[in-house]
Amino acid sequence: MKIDNSLPLEYSTDQNQLNILGFWIFLGAEIMLFGTLFASYFTLVDRTGAGPAGAEIFEITPVLIETLLLLTSSFTIGLAVHAMRLANKKATMAFIGITLLLGLAFLGVEIYEFVHYVHIGAGLQTSAFTAILLTTLGTHGAHVTFGLFWGTFILLQIKKRGLTPETGNKSFIFSLYWHFLDVVWIFIFSFVYLKGMM
């Protein structure tokens, strides 16, 4: 395993470079995944059947809290990568930890939101609209959940093994993933919630 020290830690081996390119391509596929969900959402948004429309169920407060939490976490994961490049293990771990806590808080609010929807009669089976709404949000939420586990694993590995080309690579890729989820959320926020509330 040749290590090229002229490059940032996450790019420093051949395998690391492959991993990063591979992950970018994976994100391309994820864009298609969410793109398809959005396209389906716009197709079904008016097909509310006997159930409520978006404007009737959306509430701005939890959505704003979620947005705030996720945007902040995107910032902190950026700081984590910065710290990783400066080879500051403690700061890297701290920022990843904060990111995960913010993600957890986001997830908590989202679960509250889902329970609320079901409670007011906008469950998965209510209509095509509620189904695609909950599926789109749920897919994003599932990604965040997966990210929490993944991030925790990386955190443990950094703690145990320090900042090696491997752990550096993993935390960088994790940051790409987390930023991506943030971008998706911005689309959800704008085109699902804001458009739906207008």
């Binding site: 389906s40 197709t43 079904l44 097909r47 509310t48 059947g49 006997a50 159930g51 998965l124 089976q125 209510t126 209509s127 095509a128 609209f129 189904a131 695609i132 599926t135």
Partner: peptide
Amino acid sequence: FGTNFFTTSNGGMDML
């Protein structure tokens, strides 16, 4: 799970 994406009721859309 009994959703209505492609059914003929509750707004489902077979063409999708």
